[in-house]
Amino acid sequence: MSYSPEFLLESYRTMKTIRLFEERVIKEFEAGNIPGFVHAYDGQEAVAVGVCMNLTDKDVIGSTHRGHGHCIAKGCDVVGMMKEIMGKAGGLCKGKGGSMHIADFDKGMLGANAIVGGGPPLCNGAALSAKTLGTKDVAVSFSGDGSSNQGTVAEALNLAVVLKLPHVFMFENNGYGEGTGADYAVGSGDVAGRAGAYGMPSAKMDGIDFFAVYEATREAVERARRGEGPTALEADVVRFDGHFIGDPQLYRAKGEIKQLRADRDCLKHFRARVTGEGWLSDAQLDEIDESVTALVEKAAAEGLAAPQPDISELYTDVYISY
């Protein structure tokens, strides 16, 4: 398989944007500039980007509480995201959603979702729209190993098969449902295999390998566009941070995170692969690093400088009419 330089550069830029964005969010959270609960996506970038590089703006995704990476990969504006996460006016959702509820329908981003297992049933609906309206668009639900234990997801898997919906279920298995190990909580230890039990084709891949995710998703998305129904994918990924920012992570083994950052960093993996293959040079990637650094700096500065929402916003947007 060969990839164009444009494709590779865009993929790297998006992954790097997620990484630096999350590192900045962590910094701003620790500085007290971000209210509430925040769940960082760094470490899982290859999944969000590997999936979304297969999608158009008309395809839709549903996301999770750990959703910043999915938003960025689907094309959401990072300045608007940073304002949203800071709860400021001008945020993508006017500061009324926050980290766990960012959405941008214009980009096909149907929403982060703070309910584990909340998104897959909704993505069935988006897939049903595509099927009913004959658009050939697809829906991708991102959810985690934890969500695979939810009844909503079981129901969604079955309905997707029954109605042959163009829906790709991407399960990001980062080894933890909050502070409980997937090895313990996923009874069979086999998330993709569960989908198979509902009659859905499935595949597993190493989620730190951008190319593995991209290719598996490509096949699933093409299958969905051909009207052949849903696919479940399980990506084995790593969680660099806690369940939430500030999580002391006492449940993790000593040295585990350090080891993961050294051995299982998808960005390092990507750089080694594309330079090793001679597809891109280090200089090209370094240049992207610089411009992404500047972009994230701008997002943080604009987020910090943005005004608070007007109190009148408390009362708007409950209904379209009432």
């Binding site: 839709v60 549903g62 329908f105 149907l110 909340g118 897959p120 049933p121 909704l122 993505c123 069935n124 609906g125 988006a126 897939a127 049903l128 729209s129 595509a130 009913t132 309206l133 829906a139 009844g151 909503t152 129901e155 969604a156 079955n158 309905l159 029954v162 109605l163």
Partner: peptide, 24 residues
């Protein structure tokens, strides 16, 4: 357009909500 579903109320309501978000 008249869809018999499994007995899966979360799946029914979720699909309806997601479909409503996207044009139905």
């Amino acid at each position: 357009r008249v869809i018999d579903t499994p007995i899966s109320e979360s799946a029914i309501i979720g699909a309806a909500a997601g479909a409503a978000n996207t044009g139905l």
